[in-house]
Nucleic acid binder design. Structure first.
Lengths: 240, 240
DNA sequence: CAATGCCAGTGATTTCAATCACACCAGACT
DNA sequence: AGTCTGGTGTGATTGAAATCACTGGCATTG
């Protein structure tokens, strides 16, 4: 499928690039569609592309020595993954799989490297992205230290709330609400948090009983009370 | 205290730098000594130096929302930390504390940035270091997925074995041995692995009973049988 | 249309590490 | 010497989450 410069400029990191650079990138990029469970990047492989997610949701996963699946991060539309290879020529550090049907733009590392070399702004942006990744991993690790499992789930849920809704309702009196599109399955959340699928289910039940979240079909999770969710995430309140 | 170019060139990443660059860095660098438990870098602060560890052992730590300490990584002599700030101007992502008395060289970010800009080799090296950091965090995360706690401890222990000794004894028949200088306390290992201090103690007892490790004063931990330790780490054998 | 597979929900049971509550030891300090 | 402190060693108890073993719903597919 053809990739246009316009498509690329839909991604925040690429947006500031000059038109010729975008054209150059577009020329070498390809779009690929993945079905649920499709493997986008393979750990250990010498992947030669960076993946920009246009639609859907991806998850970085790894496996323990004894074969258990471990969830590392989620990738939301507009974000990208596989950027580690831009900085060294090591292997891809983890698997990236599609949690939902997904549309991904593959841009060769080499093309991006050339842009990076010419374009110090780009270098900075990619550098801060990598730094952000480290910060995010650090946060995720600190989640695992929480002894209260329900709090862990609430934190993870909070992170899935769209950014624009988070600020909402700070001053407002009524219960601010939001929606998570294509939410991960209980299992997918479980491996992120090092807990069992059943435990995630039970926490969700508890949240539903308290009218804090609500399922709306398989592709939508409504958050009825953002403030309350946040309180649970922060530990100000405890889920019995 | 005065920092000489020779001192700096003791660090693998700085070694390939041309002499003038080293001189420039040395001029702006300072040495600082820390006592055990000293705080080298503070999370949230806008730290303006990269820390090269000359002697001792450091640990990156974070805290959960409810105040528990979480161990992130160890820093060994010859390695460095606080490099995230080279790539963006965000705050230091975690605390770094001295586990033993330590000698640390502080080199201002600005000086390093200048070198980086002039010196594409340096950029690559720092880039791959950051990439290595991500890989290392990914691995550490996967450790936490191990259901067998003893195995976790053995993996962590294995990672503390000096690199040069690891290859050893692959072909040899006799039990290859090694030594970990200034090993972390049980508590410090515990927070890395999300387990309690007592549990670490019990695993160590078990390892000592099997003559796999042996204390030699507080500053030395002897590994009497590297191969066996590795087998436990890999899960080929189980510690009752 | 069965038929299959995947996801979610739920009770019963088990297990195993956290916690608590100590004792002990070595080194630092007075 | 005496006293503190920080690290370690150990047993008893307990509690919370994993596991097991199901049910049932919904969607895809032959």
């Amino acid at each position: 499928m053809v990739v246009t410069p316009e498509l690329l400029s839909a991604f925040p990191i690429l947006k500031p690039l000059p038109r010729p650079a975008l054209e150059q990138l577009a020329e070498h990029s390809t779009v690929k569609k993945f079905a649920r469970r499709g493997i986008v990047l393979t750990a250990g492989e010498q992947e030669d592309s960076v993946c920009f997610l246009f639609e859907g949701r991806l998850q970085g996963v790894d496996f323990t020595i004894d074969g258990r699946e471990v969830g590392l991060f989620f990738v939301e539309p507009g974000d990208f993954c596989g950027e580690l290879g831009l900085f060294d020529d090591g292997p891809q550090s983890e698997f990236v799989i599609a949690l939902t049907a997904a549309v991904v733009v593959f841009t060769p590392k080499e093309a991006l490297r050339q842009i990076m070399a010419k374009n110090p702004g780009m270098l900075n942006i990619l550098g801060s992205k990598l730094a952000a990744r480290v910060r995010q991993m650090t946060f995720q690790r600190s989640l695992l230290g929480l002894p209260n499992i329900a709090q862990r789930v609430c934190c993870q849920l909070w992170m899935l709330v769209p950014e624009r809704d988070k600020a909402d309702g700070k001053s407002e009196q009524h219960a601010a609400n939001s929606m998570i599109a294509n939410p991960p399955t209980h299992m997918e959340i479980a491996i992120m948090l090092n807990i069992s699928r059943e435990t995630v289910t039970r926490v969700f039940q508890s949240l539903q009983n308290r009218q804090i979240v609500k399922r709306d079909g398989p592709a939508k999770l409504l958050i009825s009370d953002l403030n309350l969710l946040k309180r649970y995430a922060e530990g100000s309140d405890e889920l019995g």
